[in-house]
Design a binder for these strands. Structure first.
Lengths: 259, 259
DNA sequence: TGATTGAACTCCTCTAGACGACTAGCTAAC
DNA sequence: GTTAGCTAGTCGTCTAGAGGAGTTCAATCA
């Protein structure tokens, strides 16, 4: 049985924070393991002798910190640790492309998780002004828009949307759902655009409601966004890709360029 | 005067979310500008005809999203947009090192902000097991620990702690507060360790209380953490650096390595 | 003039209760 | 055997109050 201790009403720290501290410590020390259920609101109310809202404030704090998730009608559960993901995986992608595997799949498998992709949608649209600027296109030029969602072990971890100029995609299966071995980048190189350089903007923020829904996360879990542009050896932008990832642990490797 | 509209009690979306939506829309559209004060709790209670807790729930949602900050006794204010920061700035650092400027300072100045560094602390300690492993040190070997805090326009944006093996730092001013032009990396190269490669782990998460205090942010603002290891041309790890940044916008550039 | 007090305003925390909705397991009816 | 419905337990949302504490500013007093 979990020893919850008691709160100190004379303490400066308000009761709801003390309760959150107690529960957080149990989680940190593994006495409340991932997946395990926290004591119910009613139990905590009885135990600490406080009002419902006070207990809820404490739990809200833990939810905001991403330590627990509440499930309506079931209880509050300790979040399980997520699989580690690679952040800038383009070099990694190079290594695996020849095997016909995407970086995402290769990496998930390497770390013992089951990868999958769903919600693949491919359309042909007039580039938005923003995309047109990033791809250095003339107004009203068309782009292939490829969006998809990545999952590990059946849980969504990332959404991505790529924009490729129609002029580059023409004659390739980039506008098909299945792009063949090596993926989009393989087809872009087939079309004579050897990839040379990527630029990424990385940021972290709280998710929008749409992102929360797509990634099946609560409002308190931050997301990392990557806005990537790929350039060929002539400096022509050949793809831009916007991805939104559940922010956990990512690994990035890079070299200091020769002087 | 701000048009707050009304909430729809027959709507499925609960009132507190509707109120949050209304306020969020005003912020998104700039009708509530950065720094501006939101209507007070009392005003919102009167206007929407709801209870206190309902209004507070709505504002809590915006606080969690990082859109507003509450100041006890003063009011709730729209957060102002933060300066943009570069994420992995080592190449950038190379460019500026010769000018005797750190990447942080060069970059802040380039974007029109006033950079500063404070809370510099330099100590000589026995490496912790974790640091020893990352630096490939023998047990009980000593390291120079350099911690500092970076600010732009007087607001903290980042804390960093570097660990350099004492064996490398010996005979250099790495253990001094002022390391001279080119900073730590300059001195490491002076000591005969030419830098060749960096590995970084990037992740985002909610801040710990200590980090919240150091960065002067609320609980709802995510932080990005970078765990970096620098290697010399012989593959010897020469520095590890842990940084915690307020997660906003960062830019990362890198090349695809030659095949 | 300068310091102090007090009022008005703000957000912070808490209480005690209400109803609703979702989940899971049991039971009774089919 | 299967299904429908009931029920206990859970969290979600809301109401209507209370006192506390930080901030600001004007009025007051020395």
């Amino acid at each position: 049985m979990l020893d919850l201790g008691t709160i100190d009403r004379s303490n400066d720290r308000p009761p709801y924070r003390q309760i959150a501290d107690i529960l957080r410590a149990h989680i940190d020390h593994g006495r409340l393991a991932p997946g395990e259920q926290l004591p119910s609101e009613a139990t905590l109310i009885d135990h600490f002798g406080v009002a419902r809202m006070t207990v809820r404030e404490a739990i809200k704090e833990l939810r905001t910190e991403g330590l627990v998730v509440a499930q309506h009608g079931k209880g509050v559960f300790v979040r399980s640790a997520p699989p580690v993901r690679r952040l800038a995986s383009d070099r990694f992608a190079r290594r695996h492309r020849k095997e016909g595997k995407s970086a995402f799949i290769a990496e998930a498998e390497a770390s013992g998780h089951v990868p999958s992709v769903d919600q693949i949608r491919v359309t042909n649209e007039v580039a938005s002004p923003e995309v047109a600027e990033r791809l250095n296109l003339k107004p009203r030029e068309r782009v292939i828009v490829r969006s998809r969602r990545y999952l590990t072990d059946g849980r969504p971890v990332e959404t991505a949307t790529s924009y490729i100029p129609e002029s580059i995609a023409k004659g390739t299966p980039i506008a098909e759902v299945n792009t063949g071995p090596g993926g989009i980048y393989g087809r872009i190189e087939d079309a004579g655009h050897e990839l040379a350089r990527f630029t990424e903007e990385v940021s972290a923020r709280m998710p929008t409601p749409a992102e929360r829904k797509a990634l099946e996360i609560g409002a308190g879990i931050p997301v990392m966004t990557l806005v990537r542009t790929a350039y060929d050896t002539n400096g022509v932008p050949v793809e831009v890709c916007d991805t939104v990832k559940i922010a956990h642990s990512f690994v990035l490797e890079y070299d200091v360029p020769a002087q």
